[in-house]
Nucleic acid binder design. Structure first.
Lengths: 208, 208
DNA sequence: TTGCTAATGTACGAACTAGTACGTTAGTTA
DNA sequence: TAACTAACGTACTAGTTCGTACATTAGCAA
């Protein structure tokens, strides 16, 4: 049995970030409590100030890590061998799956928008991270136009927005939607339906 | 010059609701401060407790009024004289315009989702309010199917979701989107572009 | 083995925040 | 015009919450 270090800076830091991610996502920036975050770790509140400096810097670190983790997932999509319509459908599905798999990240996006994204300006290298996903999409759209199967007046960022909005809404607004229309947007047995619907939506829009 | 009443229950109540709407929308439920809300009115904090009972009940009243106001706007759409494709486009545009015109309401929806819509259960008659918009849409879809211009396997609530998601995202996530892609989704000179895009999107999806 | 420091824990304070006890008055009504 | 009450204001409290001063120790390096 390996003796676990009692003092492990990396482990403490990571644990704080993990718990803080959940807390900020669940309760928002002002709703999250540093005492509560600390209580849910094996360490104490003191360490939040030791490692991060304060509540705000902790939130910043949470945001930065969350976006960094996303980057990896976005690059898994390999669509070079697919014809353009199948390729955009694939890209849409990657976004769809990603949103569903990371509800905490989606909530953080909502929290950050509620604060007018004022923290994102302090998170460097975020811009080039995200643009890679759009570049991938743009390449497929260009290919589709050359093949004569796509409209030639479509902007890649607009298409990305349209895909994101569908995926985001389904996860972010499932509670009010459920209350108003008595329909669970995340019900497993409707998952395929929505996934297909998104693909139909995008390819239908792009078709000449 | 009409002498304004110094004591006016209705005016005080309304003023509190107006300011509270802004505060809750801007700072979230836990971020909003009752002292701050009171300070921005001509009355005092005491009146919040006098008229509403507490912070939570005030929030509830804000939510209820916000949804009630929406109802009126939703019923202005008159699409009986339009052919099905033009009619769904019109309905989408009404939603589009409405979202753009009421950012505070959009934020409240976000705030309420952040709290798992736990307050909406206490707001009676919300369900039948909102279903009227979907009924209108369903009627148009049925007409389109009968005319042979629309797919016959489409659910009205799904279409409503797809319209809502586009409109919601554009308003709710404009800040992170702007930070990440340097594009203002609410820029006036791109408004018509997005409005048309939404119409194309929906009609493209419905077309046989 | 011994010192040294990064890592950690405890106990506390200052500021904030929701809520309330109590007193006052404008405007109506008999 | 006198009495009554809805409407309103002031001043306070109890509890919370972020942050910190100060003490302690695990584990590494010399």
């Amino acid at each position: 049995m390996t003796q676990e270090r009692q003092r492990d800076a990396e482990r403490t830091r990571t644990e704080l970030l993990d718990v803080a991610t959940e807390e900020f996502a669940e309760r928002g920036y002002s709703g999250a409590r540093v005492d509560e975050i600390a209580a849910r770790t094996r360490t104490t509140k003191r360490m939040i100030y030791y490692y991060f400096g304060g509540k705000e810097q902790l939130y910043l670190a949470v945001l930065e890590r969350a976006y960094a983790e996303i980057r990896a997932a976005e690059r898994t999509a390999d669509v070079g061998h697919l014809d353009p319509p199948a390729a955009v459908r694939r890209l849409a599905e990657v976004t769809f799956d990603h949103h569903e798999a990371h509800p905490a990240f989606i909530k953080l996006v909502g929290v950050e928008n509620a604060q007018h994204a004022k923290h994102m300006n302090h998170v460097a290298r975020l811009v080039d991270l995200n643009s890679s996903a759009v570049d991938l999409l743009r390449g497929v759209l260009d290919r589709g136009v050359r093949d004569g199967v796509f409209r030639d007046d479509v902007d890649a960022l607009d298409v990305h927005m349209m895909i994101s909005s569908f995926c985001f809404f389904r996860v972010a607004n499932r509670h009010t939607w459920g209350a108003l229309f008595d329909r669970d947007l995340l019900a497993p047995d409707r998952r395929e339906h929505y996934r297909t619907m998104l693909g139909d939506l995008v390819t239908g829009y792009l078709r000449k």
